[in-house]
Design a binder for these strands. Structure first.
Length: 355
DNA sequence: AAGACTCACAACCGCTGCTAG
DNA sequence: TCTAGCAGCGGTTGTGAGTCT
């Protein structure tokens, strides 16, 4: 049983709005507000339009102080950073850009920014791929497990600009041409008190770890086993698939962090699409918290800052959980609950992320 | 000059989450 | 607790303008 349609489809006008319709809608809303009911609004003012259509027209076009086109370099950077951090949450992104609507940003991203960024990505990855090929060739000649396959850093696509997430908020100089320079971003994050996945080898327990980090590494001694490391906001866990109750976890899920076993299956398939970069690095979430002025120590709170294009609020924790706790993580966490507390591979640590 | 193609943007569609009854 | 109705969101489509061949 489907939901009843919000309006009589046969009797509503579709397509572009006429100036008369715009004027009617604008005049009414400016005088009376929406009355909290978009569905009833078109009837009140004699418009043969769907309520949803009226809402969209108002929010995206008629509302005061709407800016169209002419995105600045700074806005570009903010959009890119946030997209790489949180994905296509256009309303959230729009909330950071006064006068911009989610629809506008979405269109701008799809038509221009994505291409701009992909061009940059492809260049960088082509160079990286060439390096990896060389290394693989060298390693295979000596009948050894390729170094690249055992690399501690394979937990992530190593040098993604996504690390740059939230940088505009932490560093106003987003117009800096080095904005995408990974080294400078790295050092900035380190200054913020964080560290990177390739530091994991030094210590299983984080002192300053960005909130969530699910990674998989192959084991050279036991080629058919793998280990999964979780550095969440409140715990650091390492599980070996050969001896953990979590060994049944579907390997396909490992890709949640943008890497995992699939990465080994043919470097030809080295990801080039932007959406594969999104969520690939959870480090930025901490930065994003700062970006939204969240208190990272109180475990949540409201991040309503009143700037959303549609005025809604959302809980940061809800958003983060939807971003950073994909299925693998929740499955792992379920498994972890069944682990004995004295399991040497399970250790608690407090989240001491960016202070 | 005209048809083909591409791009940018407005608008629509369908799903999800929230909330009042 | 359940359900219906609504607002809001994100993906997709339609269309007009601009560019290329």
């Amino acid at each position: 049983m489907g939901r009843a349609p919000c309006c009589d489809k046969a009797n509503v006008k579709k397509g572009p709005w006429s100036p008369e319709e715009d004027a009617k809608l604008k005049a009414y809303i400016e005088q009376n507000g929406t009355g909290g009911n978009w569905i009833a609004l078109p009837q009140k003012i004699g418009l043969k339009r769907c309520g949803k259509s009226c809402r969209l027209r108002w929010l995206n076009y008629l509302r005061p102080n709407i800016k169209h086109g002419g995105f600045s370099e700074e806005e570009d950077n903010i959009i890119c950073s946030l997209y790489l951090s949180i994905g296509s949450r256009w309303s959230i992104i729009a909330a950071q850009l006064p006068g911009r609507t989610d629809n506008d940003i979405k269109n701008y991203w799809n038509t221009r920014l994505k291409k701009k960024l992909l061009g940059k990505q492809r260049k960088e990855q082509a160079a990286r791929r060439a390096t990896l090929r060389k290394e693989l060739k060298r390693e295979s000649q000596s009948f050894m497990v390729p170094e690249v396959m055992n690399q501690k850093n394979l937990n992530y696509w190593p040098e993604l600009p996504s690390v740059a997430a939230a940088m505009p908020a932490m560093n106003a100089s987003t117009q800096d041409s080095n904005f995408w320079d990974e080294e400078s971003l790295r050092s900035m994050l380190v200054k913020q008190g964080g560290r990177f996945s390739d530091d994991h080898q030094e210590s299983n327990i984080s002192s300053n770890v960005y909130p969530l980090d699910v990674s998989c590494t192959s084991n050279q001694d036991h080629p058919y086993s793998s280990s999964v490391n979780i550095l969440s906001s409140n715990s650091a866990v390492s599980i070996n698939s050969t001896d953990s109750p979590c060994s049944q976890l579907p390997s396909a899920n490992y890709a949640v962090s943008g890497a995992g076993p699939s990465i080994y299956q043919g470097l030809e398939e080295f990801p080039v699409e932007l959406h594969e970069l999104v969520y690939s690095n959870n480090h930025q979430l901490a930065g994003l918290k700062s970006f939204y002025g969240m208190d990272t120590t109180n475990g949540g709170g409201n991040w309503k800052n009143g700037a959303s294009s549609s005025g809604e609020s959302a809980s940061w924790e809800n958003i983060v959980s939807s971003l950073a706790y994909p299925q693998l993580v929740s499955e792992l966490e379920t498994c972890l609950q069944s682990l004995p507390q004295d399991n040497s591979s399970y250790e608690d640590s407090s989240y001491l992320g960016p202070q």
